[in-house]
Amino acid sequence: MYKITERTVLSEREIEFWIIAPRVAAKAQPGQFVILQVDQFGERIPLTVCETDEASGQIRVIFQVIGKSTAELKHLNAGDELQDVVGPLGKPTEIKNYGTVLVVGGGVGIAVLYPVIRGLKQAGNHVITILGAKTKDLVILREECAMYSDELILVTDDGSLGQKGLVTDAMKAVFAREEINQAWAIGPGIMMRYCTDVATKAEVPIYVSLNPIMIDGTGMCGCCRVLVNDQIKFACVDGPEFLGDQVDWDGFIQRMHQYHPEEEEAYQAYQEKQVQLNG
């Protein structure tokens, strides 16, 4: 069992946990994730390891509530225990000194991006960070990202914080004014796809972090497969980071919709039950 030691509400739909998982805490690198399962009935839910504290054996995860499993997670409190936490899974981000890097995070993708930013800064890069979300309250981890960024650009769809517009507009502006050696984009599929287009046009290599549906996370089911450079890759073991211009985006985005009817059913049943239980 893996105990939740701290629970913080970051925004209306984003929650943060610190969980005791000493083995993961000792090993996790930026870019890696865990799979957690609440109990025997639950799904295996992949979440990025956002930070670790090796001394106390804890890991930090941040999740957005989007369906049944994450809604269920939201209802857990400090002191509750998870049946399973396994990891760290996936390949770590290729952290080294590239020179000047541009990192772009959208929505809950910022939680996935944060350890990457930290790693890149510590490796000596000049880090320019763009964070974007629909509205002000959804731009999470602002201060923490700022600490490891040489420049931080904030973008919201409604202009409630920073520039009004899309992260791709901010990217174009950066590309226009200076030379970038390597870029990252982490967020919703659509966002990563457009960021890839912008970076590719500017001839800057860009990494994206793919979050397909997964089960085992150890390369044994093929559920997480994506076409990269026309080859079948398993995001859980070959990724989750890939070069954006090599990803078959249509296929990737399509596969995310595989279980929509079933997910709806599970989420609705769950919400109805919550209503019954809690009035």
Partner: peptide, 20 residues
């Protein structure tokens, strides 16, 4: 580790490996 035939359409929704 599942093998795939790799024929066109392998990534369509509804195509599974037996392992999955």
């Amino acid at each position: 580790t599942p093998n795939f035939l790799g024929i066109p359409g392998t990534n369509l929704n509804g195509v599974y490996s037996s392992s999955e």
